[in-house]
């Protein structure tokens, strides 16, 4: 018998601290496998965010740097400019990237920094206890929107991929989901492609992964995946938002 699936060497043996059923674990694995398949294990440098994934530096088997809240693209810019031959990625959630770090991500993309950003969108602040995020859906109940998010009060959720895709420096932008196995396979291919754009020096690459937060959504992990499919995908359509020639 041949091994058809085993844990990638790009992940350490440290068990994830995430809640049961949290899709952060899947996203970590996909990114780690993509780096391994590209043979860049020794050249990868990651930047961890603030949020649930703050301990990402314990899980990836490569050099990692922890950035201040939202500042991962700025830190990654510095790393990439000093080490242009390295594969530099940031891994950020929606509170980190779409709220406090909006300026950093927009300008890193506008400058066309040759880095890759993995953006985890679960429509809520996870680590701090389920507050409303810029990506929280209209009507969604959170601890700071107990009657549901209202458009007249908070506007509508920000679509980060579409915003990044309007910027000239962005080379590859795609939104994928992790709600079932076929979409998880597509998500990995998207991450791998984004890294290839960086390796080819084409510019900024950005992958948005629609994710769940069973704990703060108040659902079972299985129900959370269904909720993602039924509610998030209609508002956050999947697909390639920008693609320059590779």
């Amino acid at each position: 018998m041949a091994v058809v699936f085993e844990k990638t060497k790009m992940l350490t043996d440290v068990p994830f601290h995430y809640c049961p059923g949290c899709t952060h674990g899947i996203a970590h694995r996909l990114l780690a496998e993509a780096i391994e398949e590209l043979g860049k294990e020794d050249e990868a440098i990651g930047v961890a965010p603030v949020g649930c994934a703050v301990f990402a530096y314990n899980y990836f088997n490569c050099d990692m740097m922890e950035a201040a809240h939202g500042r991962a693209p700025a830190v990654a810019t510095g790393i990439k400019r000093v080490h242009p031959d390295k594969l530099v990625f940031t891994y950020q959630g929606d509170g980190d990237l779409a709220s406090i770090g909006t300026a950093e991500i927009i300008h890193a993309a506008a400058r066309g920094e040759k880095i890759t950003t993995i953006f985890i969108n679960n429509a809520i602040y996870g680590m701090t206890g389920g507050q409303m995020a810029p990506t929280t859906l209209e009507g969604q109940v959170t601890t700071t929107s107990p009657y549901g998010r209202k458009k007249e009060h908070c506007g509508l959720p920000i679509k980060m991929s579409e915003i990044i895709a309007t910027l000239d420096g962005a080379a590859y932008v795609e939104r994928v989901s992790m709600h079932d196995v076929p979409n998880i396979i597509k998500a990995k291919n998207a991450i791998k492609k984004a890294l290839q754009y960086q390796i080819a020096g084409k510019g900024f690459s950005f992958i948005e992964l629609l994710s769940t937060c069973p704990t703060n959504w108040g659902m079972t992990p299985a129900d959370a995946l269904e909720w993602l499919k039924d509610n998030m995908i209609p508002y956050y359509p999947l697909g390639v938002k920008k693609e320059v020639e590779l």
């Binding site: 992940l11 994830f16 674990g25």
Partner: peptide, 12 residues
Amino acid sequence: RMCPDVVFTVER
């Protein structure tokens, strides 16, 4: 592929 905690090893 679905497992968030990478607990499975599969041989075939």
